[in-house]
């Protein structure tokens, strides 16, 4: 059994370095440390199968650190797609990082926080970091939050890079059913952890609507289906939250 990640110690303010280490320790107790490892085993195997080098695969994880963007770029480049269309597809897939960044930073910074610390932390923002930061940060003294969460990012990236290398090396030895199981890890862990973090009515409504609208619009061949589905579902979710408050 993996331990369910406990909340980090509350109270005492640590030095920035100690806070980074505490964040790295917290990341090792997160279920994402393990699902990321396994997910990137899938990515490493994909890179191998598409003829990229192990250095390229590793650099992709270290630099991009966003599953969808990496899978999209390696698949499209492997198929010889025009570079501009790859960049466009990656940019579309990355839009989700904008609202995540905007919603995280205000709860992490203090008036004294330096921009470069925010920029460094922002590099690590991904679904897993977003979820774990929302969960951990409220229990960490505000002065330590940005360092602590950067530590979470470093821990998760390390685990992902190791997974990429393992996947690349193991590529030829994985049977199809296990490869499929590796690819199923991402949706399962995203689904359950987002559900765990959705406390507000707005989030819950947006979650259920997003789950149904996105494939519906994709099936209807609507352009930018994910983006339109998310904006619609998110806005309706906010509407539900607003309506309930007005009625009370």
């Amino acid at each position: 059994m993996l331990p369910q990640s406990p909340a980090p110690p509350e109270g005492a303010v640590l030095s920035p370095g100690a806070a980074v280490l505490a964040g790295m320790r917290a990341s090792s107790r997160s279920v994402f440390c393990y699902t990321l490892f396994a997910t990137f085993v899938g990515f490493g195997a994909l890179c191998h199968d598409l003829g990229f080098s192990i250095y390229w695969a590793t650099l992709s994880t270290a630099l991009i650190f966003a599953g969808p963007a990496q899978v999209i770029s390696v698949t499209m480049l492997g198929a010889g797609a025009p570079l501009l269309s790859v960049a466009f597809a990656v940019a579309l897939s990355g839009i989700r990082l904008l609202p995540m960044t905007v919603s995280l930073l205000p709860m992490l910074r203090t008036p004294q926080t330096r921009t470069r610390d925010l920029v460094l932390f922002a590099h690590f923002i991904a679904v897993s970091i977003w979820i774990e930061t929302l969960r951990f940060a409220p229990h960490v003294p505000r002065e330590n939050r940005i360092s602590f969460c950067t530590g979470i990012g470093i821990g998760m990236t390390t685990s992902s890079v190791l997974g990429t290398i393992a996947g690349f090396v193991l590529a030829a030895q994985l049977p199809p059913l296990l490869s499929a199981a590796v690819l199923m890890l991402t949706p399962l862990s995203f689904l359950t952890s987002t559900a765990r973090n959705s406390i507000l009515l707005s989030d819950r409504t947006a979650f259920v609507l997003g789950l149904t609208l996105a494939p519906l619009l994709a099936w209807m061949k609507v352009d930018f289906s994910l983006l339109i589905a998310a904006l619609t579902a998110g806005t309706l979710g906010y509407g539900a939250h607003w309506l309930r408050r007005v009625l009370q």
């Binding site: 949706p187 507000l200 947006a206 997003g210 149904t212 494939p215 998310a230």
Partner: peptide, 25 residues
């Protein structure tokens, strides 16, 4: 609150797409 709802919906959408329009194996 709105931004967070949109981010949550993006995630839900990614989950649905990965399962419906499955990659690779």
């Amino acid at each position: 609150i709105w931004v967070r709802a949109v981010a949550t919906a993006v995630l839900a959408g990614v989950v649905a797409q990965l399962v419906v329009d499955a990659p690779g194996a």
